[in-house]
Amino acid sequence: MAGDATPHFHNTEGHRSIEIGVKEFMCMGALPPNDHPHIFLDMGEDEERICPYCSTLYRYNPKLNAHETVPPGGLFEDGPA
């Protein structure tokens, strides 16, 4: 969809897993300046995906919207440029 930004998620708190409401997303590891390269991950038909950089386990939860995480606070929201 044109105009839709791919959500970026982080695991600064070091949770074992993070539930998200999308299957295509970017993982950045931790918040800047401690982030790793922001990489695109696609779960495809699977329900979970492990980031190859930081080993965060992301689990798809269809009850969540694209900007929610469980535990809360895992969405990266970049401020104005």
Rank of each mutant, 00 (worst) to 15 (best):
D35N: 09
C27D: 02
H15C: 08
E45T: 10
V70D: 11
P72A: 13
E19Q: 13
I18H: 02
C27M: 02
D78P: 03
E77K: 07
P72D: 10
D78Y: 08
R49N: 01
H38W: 13
I20V: 13
N11K: 12
P62I: 09
D46G: 04
N65E: 14
A5S: 09
N11S: 13
L31E: 05
F25K: 00
R49Q: 05
P71D: 10
G21W: 07
A5H: 07
L64P: 02
A81Y: 12
G14D: 06
K63Y: 06
D4G: 04
P62F: 15
G74A: 04
T12I: 09
Y53W: 09
V22H: 00
P32N: 04
H36T: 05
T69P: 09
L75I: 15
D46P: 01
Y53C: 03
E19L: 08
R59V: 12
F25Q: 00
F40T: 08
E68D: 06
G21P: 04
H10I: 13
A81L: 10
H8W: 12
S17G: 07
C51N: 01
S55Q: 15
M1F: 15
M1A: 11
E47Y: 10
N65Q: 11
S17I: 02
H15A: 11
P7V: 11
E48Q: 12
V22R: 00
Y53S: 03
H38N: 08
G3H: 14
K63T: 09
F9N: 01
D78I: 05
Y53A: 03
E68K: 06
E13K: 15
P52W: 10
I18L: 13
F9P: 00
G14L: 07
H36R: 04
R59E: 03
N61T: 05
K63L: 05
G74T: 05
G29E: 00
V70E: 14
F25Y: 03
A5P: 03
N11G: 09
L31N: 04
E45K: 11
G73S: 14
F9Y: 15
F9Q: 02
L31H: 06
C27P: 00
M43C: 04
K23W: 01
K23N: 02
